[in-house]
Amino acid sequence: MEGLLVQLIIIGIKILFILAIVLGLGAYLTLVERKVAAHIQRRPGPMVVGWHGLLQPLADGLKLITKEDIFPRYGNRFLYNLALVLALVPAVLVFAVVPFGPEFEIFGIKIKPILTDVNVGLLLVFALGSMAVYAIALAGWASNSKYALIGSMRKAGIIVSYEVVITFAVMGPIILAGTLSTYEIVQRQIDQKLWYIWLQPIAFVIYMFALLAEAGRVPFDIQEAEAELVTGFTVEYGGIKFGLFPLVEWYVEVLSLSAIGVVLFLGGWSPINIPFVGFVDPLFFLGPLSPFVWFALKVGLLFLFVLWLHWTLPRYRIDQITETAWKVMLPLTFVNLVLTAIIAPIVWR
């Protein structure tokens, strides 16, 4: 009985921790994005609210919350609101299977810094990722706007194509690790002294492409394409409801997919890897905190890479995006998968 209570408390703390990190960080990533964009564009960015605009996300949030909640005439109010929930919940739920660091002991209790280490963790990630289609399709449909409808159809088309691609892309690392549990995958990479990016470079590149597509980042941001569709499927949302969609799409989703990418290809919380030799940890002086810092560092780097692309490249057209997915990326992942499946059992064990 006592053990169960402790377990429950620990899980509660973990949930609070993750929610705080994800939503708080999500809000502050808007500031990061604006600053990065500003410096790419040779301007200072937000400077007024707080030191170098540090309080800007709070001001933005306050503004969005206090705005009038407008609902389009002839829209479907139930679906309109349901779309919001369907967008937010799966995106945050993904973090349940993201391992932030190795197991550690505190007050005699062993804690894994992962909410639930289910043995089909990756499957869960992609199942939840597919849920995003519903949110977007509903948002576009319930708004009773042609622009919103076109935007949501575009996005749904992309997600359907890239869900397939991303699933096949991660097959490589899964075969190498022999497990679907995210925690175990990282553990295997540490045991084998190898980040899987060294063996699966193609899969990694395709994964990054799919990440951009799923999160609606440039060059795949056609669902919002402000010059064509104003803001696509969010065009009829106002106030904080409007704020939530980009928050989920651009920050929470990028964050969660980057985290999964780090887990699959970059060895999770492990320090810099020299293939088959071992790990070099320049941050050894941080002691037990070092793995957590490494994890955050890698996710942050992937996020900055996404931002860098976003503020540099033009955007594709919808037919070009789906064409790339089905005609180029999917065959590539197949080749990768077949090669891995044939070679890995011979060399690996």
Binding site: A37, Q41, R42, R43, A227, W311, L313, R315
Partner: peptide, 16 residues
């Protein structure tokens, strides 16, 4: 034009 095709940064370069 660049803004329409999605290259947001060129817009600010050009306007500068």
């Amino acid at each position: 034009y660049a803004l329409d095709i999605g290259a947001l940064t060129i817009f600010l370069y050009a306007f500068k």
